[in-house]
Computed example of a mutant assay.
Amino acid sequence: MIDVPSITVDVVSDVVCPWCFIGQKRLDKAIEAVPEIAVEVHWRPYQLDPTIPPQGKDRKQYMLDKFGSEERIRQIHERIEPLGAAEGIAFDFGAIKVAPNTLDAHRVIRWAGTAGDGVQNRLVRRLFQLNFEEGANIGDHTVLVEAAREAGMDAAVVETLLPTDADRDTVMGEIGTAARMGITGVPCFLLQGKYAVMGAQDTATLADAIRQVAAAKARGELDPQPV
């Protein structure tokens, strides 16, 4: 039996971060470019703005408060849209009416990590699509439950857990851990828990990083060293 090289990639991201959506697409392509390596992806939480209330804020006003003018917002969107289009993303920023608090979305993503092979990846992709391409409010529990169902989760369990505090502290603790690690922007790709690739790097850069870390692991360079 041939031993297939394998590595883990932990993606620290927020589902309202357009660069994270671009990064997700590029990571998918990078993994396709290294079929000789088994890559296991885990999604880790980060909040661009944890101060947004649970019910969210009007996105237009939120963006104006943050960036100062409609012209500045338009420039930001015009910069991102063609980069997204190149990755197959149809950004529709005008359709987004609510700037959501993403804590509950991250709780569902965490639960998806134990729901079966590929479920977490499907859920994260769906949440990106809902927010950026369909303008859905991904802070809304109904939207989250339906996304969970589409990803292959037990929607009844998600519907029962969401109104509770289940895993709220755990997710907030993970977000705090990211901050203590020095992660101040997303996406951040942590390869084999040791090497960080910051930002929505191009596909070739991500694929090369995967190859290098897999090779280092195969040589035993990532094993704990004896004291």
Rank of each mutant, 00 (worst) to 15 (best):
A136N: 10
R110N: 10
A166G: 07
A155V: 05
L161G: 02
L144G: 01
T160W: 11
G173I: 06
R168M: 04
R110S: 11
D140F: 00
T170G: 08
F128A: 08
L130G: 13
E159H: 06
L103F: 01
A115R: 02
T142G: 14
G113P: 03
E150Q: 15
V171Y: 09
P163C: 07
N121T: 15
A156D: 13
A112L: 06
D140G: 06
L103D: 00
V145K: 02
G152L: 04
D167C: 09
R149F: 08
L103W: 00
G173A: 07
R107L: 06
D169K: 11
R168H: 04
L127Y: 06
V98D: 03
A105G: 07
M172D: 12
R107S: 06
L127T: 05
W111S: 04
V145F: 02
V143G: 01
L127A: 05
T170M: 13
D169S: 12
D117N: 15
M153C: 03
E134Y: 15
D117E: 15
N131K: 12
A166S: 09
T142V: 14
V119L: 05
V98N: 02
A155H: 09
L103P: 00
V108M: 02
P163Q: 02
L123T: 04
V157N: 12
H141Q: 11
D154W: 12
L162C: 00
L127F: 03
Q120S: 08
V171H: 04
A99D: 06
N121I: 14
T102H: 01
N131S: 12
G152T: 11
M172S: 12
G135A: 10
I109H: 01
R122V: 12
H106Q: 08
Q129D: 15
A105V: 02
D140K: 00
A136W: 10
A99G: 10
E146L: 12
L123A: 07
A99R: 03
P163D: 09
G173Q: 08
E159N: 11
D165V: 03
R149V: 05
V171T: 11
A99Y: 03
N137P: 03
N121C: 11
A148Y: 01
T114L: 15
G118C: 09
D117Y: 14
D154E: 12
R122T: 13
A115P: 02
G118Y: 07
G118K: 09
V108S: 05
F132D: 08
V158K: 00
A147C: 03
V143A: 11
P100M: 05
G116S: 12
L130S: 13
A115T: 11
G113M: 10
R110I: 07
T102E: 09
N121K: 15
E146M: 13
I96M: 11
D154T: 09
V124D: 05
D140L: 05
H106W: 03
A105C: 04
T102L: 05
V157Y: 11
Q129C: 14
L103I: 04
T114I: 14
R149I: 08
R107Q: 10
R122Q: 14
A112T: 09
G173K: 07
A155E: 08
L123Q: 04
L144H: 00
D167K: 09
G135R: 03
P163R: 02
A147W: 03
G135H: 10
E150H: 13
D117C: 13
L144W: 01
D165M: 05
